[in-house]
Simulated assay, not measured.
Amino acid sequence: MKTIFSLLLIFAMMQETSAQNTTYAEKLGYPAGKKVIIMHVDDAGMSYDSNEGSLKAIRDGVATSVSVMMPCGWVPGFVHYLKQYPDIDAGLHLTLTSEWKEYRWGPLAGKPAVKGLVDAEGAMWPSVADVVKHATADEVEIEIRAQLERARTMGFEPTHLDSHMGTLFATPAFIERYIKVGMQEKIPVMLPGGHNTAVRVDENMSDDMYAMTQTIGKQLWNAGLPVLDDLHNTSYGWKLPEGTKATKENLQSFKTQKYIEGLRDLKPGLTMVIMHCTDPTEIFPIISGSTQTREGDLLAMLDPKLKAYIEKEGIILTTWREAMQRRGKVK
């Protein structure tokens, strides 16, 4: 009798471990053991050059998703394009900072409603630390909803929500308001709630933070939303080796290889890979010193070598829209 009980206990523990090891990608109906990737472009709407780069990466390259910075000046141009091509997977890049010196934007909710989000120039604060220091969670939620409202006013229903510069992950109170809006509005939220293998290393995630992501992942799933197994967010820091000339050919070769290495090292599951694709004119370097890395991202997305690697490895490319559609079919 004791032996039978022991066997049953072992079986139950094995079942529990198996359930814990089931990725959210598998729960969404993707094949077990597969890498399922959302190749995601940030910062659409930020500038004309950002719009052009984002669209080329999706239209002509392997990028599959994009998000829009609603307070920025080139939002109308991008949203007008989206309305012509509604199949593009586009979300909101919820924006609470304005980090450039010569080109800035303010909150859509207006200064009287969100004074803590506004600096001495009347724009949003330039850093995440400034937002944490000055803004309340109530103000953050007000601005999130204002950005969503502008999108809907323009006839743009976002496929997901994510966070510019990671500001919404800076405090538990900000995270709470971020996921609250997503769950209430039934919009998928970018938050890695699975095994988090890459992001734990990339962000030096503490055990407490990891435990929080697991709890929030379950909350999002139980609210009927898809959940990421992992997040890859290191491409912005990839710089050409010292002494390498910044030609288009060198940028493309370098960034393509870095993306191949990044995809190779990912574990199975649903992962969002973040990039910033820009097709720079002579104006963009005046806005930002990030021209090289952003142009490199675009060139990598257009590189046939990257597409060939993805196909050879059997990597599944997907979108937030498809993930949400699949979630709707899961009981």
Rank of each mutant, 00 (worst) to 15 (best):
L168E: 02
G166L: 14
T171Y: 12
Y178H: 06
P188C: 01
M183Y: 07
K186W: 07
G166W: 11
A173Q: 11
T159K: 02
T171C: 15
Y178E: 05
T159C: 01
V189G: 04
A170I: 12
L161M: 14
V181Q: 05
M183Q: 13
K186M: 13
L161R: 08
E185T: 08
M183K: 15
T167Q: 14
I187R: 02
H160P: 00
P172G: 14
K180R: 14
T167F: 11
A170C: 11
Y178T: 10
F169T: 09
H160K: 01
K186Y: 05
R177L: 05
F169M: 15
R177P: 03
V189M: 05
I187H: 04
F174G: 06
T171E: 13
G166P: 12
M190F: 00
K180W: 04
K180M: 05
I187K: 02
T159W: 00
A170V: 09
Y178V: 03
D162V: 10
K186Q: 15
K186E: 14
M183H: 08
A170S: 15
V181M: 06
F169E: 08
Y178A: 06
R177A: 06
Q184F: 02
G182S: 07
H160E: 01
E176F: 06
Y178P: 04
I175D: 02
I175G: 02
L168S: 01
H160C: 03
G166V: 07
Q184C: 00
A173F: 01
F169K: 09
T159S: 13
I175V: 15
I175H: 04
G182P: 03
H160T: 02
M183R: 10
I175C: 07
M165Y: 12
P172I: 08
G166D: 11
M165T: 09
P188Q: 02
D162I: 07
H160F: 05
F174N: 05
T159N: 04
K180N: 13
K180H: 14
T171M: 13
D162W: 09
K180I: 03
R177F: 03
V189K: 00
D162A: 12
L161H: 04
G182W: 03
F174I: 07
G166Q: 13
D162L: 11
K186T: 10
V181G: 08
T171D: 11
D162T: 09
